[in-house]
Structure formats: C-alpha cells, structure tokens
Design a protein around this nucleic acid. Structure first.
Lengths: 128, 128
DNA sequence: GCGCGAATTGACTTTTACGTAAATGCCGTG
DNA sequence: CACGGCATTTACGTAAAAGTCAATTCGCGC
C-alpha cells in the first residue's frame, strides 16, 4: 500500500480533473494532507474518492454523497446520535432499494427492446 | 383506462410541477395532444412520464433518458439502424450493470455501518 | 542558484434542469 | 357577464457541479 498519491495520479486513475478533486476538497469530501502547498492523498483519501465516484454514478448529489460518507465513519458515542444515524442509514437504504427496482425494470425493458430488434432482424432474413 | 389526463392530474400523481412537464415537452420527451392550447395527456404519455421519472431516479440526464426512451420504441426497418440500435442497447445495459454493482456495494457498506452502530449501542447497554 | 514543468489559487464561464414572475387565455358558475 | 381558477406563453433567474483561464509559485534536477 502506497503512502501517498499525487493529485495527477488520482486524476488519471479516476479520469477526473484536478479542478474536480480540489472542488471535492472545498466541499469537505476529502482532506488530503499538505507538503507545503502540495496535496498528498493517502490511501484513505483514495478510498473516499472511490466512494464518491460510486455515488456519482448512482446519481447522488454532492450533499447526498457527503451524508453517505459520514455514515461510513466511526459511529458516534451518544445514544441519541446513534439512533438518528441508524434511522438515516435505513432511509438511504430504502432509497437504494427503490433505485434497484427502477434498475431491474429498466433492464427488463431494454431486454424486451433488444429482443424486438433481434426478431426484426430475423424477419429481414439477417442471421444474428 | 382513462382517455386523457390533465396536466395537473399528472403533476399530482408524479409530484412534479407543470413547468417540469412543459419542459419535458419542449425537450421532446412527451407530446400530449391539444384541445385549443390545453394539453391533453394520453395513457401513453403517462407511461412515458413514468419511464422518465425512473430514469431520473437512476441519475440519468435528460439526454440519456431521451436515448433510453427511443430504445423502447418500434425497432427501425433498416438493417444498419437495427444493428446500431442493438449496440446502443447493450452499451446502456452495461451502464446499468455498473450501476447495479455500485448499488450492491453501497448497500453492503451501509449494512456494515448500521451493524457498527447497533454494536455501539449494545456496548452502551442499550437494548435494541 | 536557476530554470522549468507541475501544482495551486482565484475568478469567471458553462451546462443542466428546472423555478419564478408577468401577462394573458379559456371556461364553468352564479 | 363578471369572476375565480386553472392553463399557457415568454422571458429571465438560479443552484449544482464542474470547466477554463490567467497569474503565480513550488520544488527538483542539474
């Protein structure tokens, strides 16, 4: 496990711009350490970026991603906070389960659409 | 099956604004018929709106949704077009499969996070 | 010590997906 | 027929999430 990654290494790995990574830092999603003014990203920062990209692909906003990331952190020490966090986690899970249903339905419709295309090709005498 | 829906009926059903529905019409996603200047939405328009909302929940942009909707339509008559469409459908399906992986991973991480919270509560002597 | 490419910062711009306001049309009701 | 209430059109506004550009400024390689 590498100790540090430079900003450009990560922009290449995740195919995003330096501007984007700095934006995420401004937004408090990552907090790389500094050597002088230069950002040094630790493996934990890299893992956070992975999670951010996943959230983005799932269509979550920066704020939603921030919330999700906070859920991955150490659970709080106070009972009320803990219960609140569990509630939030379950809400987010319901959200994801809805997305999963949407996803399965969309996949099924695409399957139908493709089959219709394949049949149409067969009618036209094209061997798939 | 109702013949027509008014714009406000649909805004209530899908919890969106009239502005949004008009915007979708401008974008060519739906094409309600008119009585005078008033829009009349048919069941097929309503179904389209369902698909649009699904696409939105999955984080697709208007353009992506437009593409997906076109895939649900009658397959084209020309062989080249058909093959192209099949290619597009498979790309979109790969996209959705990536989303599904992202989704499962995120759900798993949320499960972990919740368990950590529950354990923490147990440590604090709270009976869940 | 110096040059130069890589990194940083700040300001401005762009795109997407609508929101909002103003002016006006249409239509059933009393 | 005046009125209330929903619909429409036009036009401008806006928040989120970066992109782009210009002006520095490191820092390492010699």
């Amino acid at each position: 496990m590498r100790e540090y990654y430079t900003i450009t290494e990560l922009t290449r790995e995740f195919d995003i711009s330096t501007r984007t990574l700095r934006f995420y830092e401004d937004e408090g999603l990552v907090a790389p350490v500094r050597r002088g003014r230069t950002r040094l990203f630790r493996p934990s920062d890299r893992h956070l970026i992975k999670q951010i990209m996943r959230g983005k692909r799932l269509g979550f906003s920066i704020n939603e991603i921030r919330e999700i990331i906070q859920m991955y952190r150490e659970p709080p020490g106070e009972v009320g906070q803990l219960k609140l966090m569990i509630k939030r986690i379950e809400e987010k899970r319901d959200d994801l389960r809805q997305k999963r249903r949407d996803l399965e339905e969309t996949l099924a419709e695409l399957d139908n659409a493709e089959e219709a295309c394949v049949e149409r090709l067969a009618e036209l005498g094209v061997n798939t």
